[in-house]
Amino acid sequence: MINSTVELPEALSETSGLFCEADFLYSVNDSGNAPIIYQANYQGDIVEQIKLALTNKDWEAITGDATSFYIADVGNNRGTREQVEIHKVNRRNVNDIVSITLKYAGNDASNNIPYAHDFDSEAMVKYADELLLFSKSWRTGITHIYRVNEAETVQTISPFASIKGLPGVVTGVDFDKRRNKFVITGYKSDPFGNFSTFMAHVSTSFSLLDVWPLKQFKQVEGVCVDNEGFYWFSEEATEDRKASLSRATAKPK
C-alpha cells in the first residue's frame, strides 16, 4: 500500500538507484549525467551533492555500508559493453575510490541484440558481507544473481543463483532485515511507453515469495528499506510524469 508520493527535484529527474539510511536517502542519475551522489531527506529535498572524480557511463544502482558507497556503472540495455564497473567509494574520503571491472561469462557484445539479451543489470545490494548484482534479463526473463569479489579489481562473473517467475525486468533491490527477505522492484514495458510496474519479495535462497503491482507508476528505478521497515522507491521522469519518491508499507493490503 502506498503511503505517500512526492515529486523529486529536476536534478534527480533520471534517478536510477536508491539507498536508505536513518536520516537520509542517496540516489544517482543514469547514463551521461554528472558523477554525483545526491543526498536527500525523506521529503525528497536534496541536502548535499557529492561530486566524484569518475565518469558516469551508465550509473544504475547505489548501495552502501558503514564505510563505503558502491555505485554500479553497469547499464547495458543495448548490449554493447564488453565490461562494466562498480566503484567503491570511501565515505570518509570520497577521493579514495576503487573501481572493480566486471566481465560477464559468455558475453559477446558483437552478438547481443539490443533490449533482447541478459548481460544487463540495474540492481545491486550489500547483503551481509556480500556485494550482489541482480541482472536485468531482457531475453529469458530469469533474473540472475552475481556475487562480486571486492578484493579483485578485474574479474569475470557467473551467476550463482536465479529467480524465476518475476513479471518483468528487475531495476532495484534491497534487503529487508526485519523480515529477512529481499525486496525487488521492476517493470515490463513496451515501445509505446506503457509500463506494468511491480514490487516483489524474494527469500534468502532466491525463491519468489510474492508479487504485487504498483499500478499508478511507470519507470521505477530504485528501492530501499528504512530503519522502521518502510519501503521507499524512486521513479524516473517519463514523458507524462515527474520523477518521484514514494513510501510504501512492506506488504500490500
Rank of each mutant, 00 (worst) to 15 (best):
E7R: 11
E10K: 15
A11V: 11
L12R: 02
E14R: 05
T15I: 11
S16N: 06
S16W: 02
S16H: 05
F19Y: 15
F19P: 00
S27T: 11
N33F: 06
I37E: 08
I37C: 11
Q39P: 00
L52S: 01
N56E: 08
K57M: 10
D58A: 05
W59G: 00
E60Q: 12
A61R: 07
G64I: 03
Y70W: 12
I71F: 00
G75S: 11
G79V: 00
G79E: 01
R81P: 05
E82V: 05
V84N: 00
I86L: 10
V89Q: 03
N90C: 09
N93M: 00
N95R: 06
D96F: 12
I97N: 04
I97R: 04
A105P: 08
G106S: 13
A109K: 15
A109N: 13
F119E: 02
S121N: 10
S121L: 07
S121C: 11
V125E: 13
A128I: 09
F134E: 04
K136N: 07
T140N: 09
I142N: 03
R147C: 07
V148G: 03
V148Q: 03
E152L: 14
V154A: 09
T156K: 14
T156E: 15
P159N: 11
I163C: 05
K164S: 13
P167V: 03
G168M: 05
V169T: 11
V170L: 07
V170A: 02
T171F: 01
V173E: 01
D174K: 01
F175L: 06
K177R: 14
R178M: 08
Y187W: 08
K188V: 02
K188N: 15
S189M: 09
S189C: 01
D190K: 04
G193E: 09
N194M: 12
N194L: 09
F195Q: 00
T197A: 01
F198K: 01
F198N: 06
M199Q: 00
A200L: 06
H201N: 07
H201I: 01
V202A: 06
S205R: 15
S205L: 13
S205H: 15
F206P: 13
P213A: 13
Q216S: 14
K218L: 09
Q219R: 12
E221P: 01
E221M: 10
C224A: 12
D226I: 12
W232N: 00
E236I: 04
T238S: 15
R241L: 14
K242M: 12
A248S: 12
A248T: 10
T249K: 12
A250G: 15
A250D: 13
K251E: 10
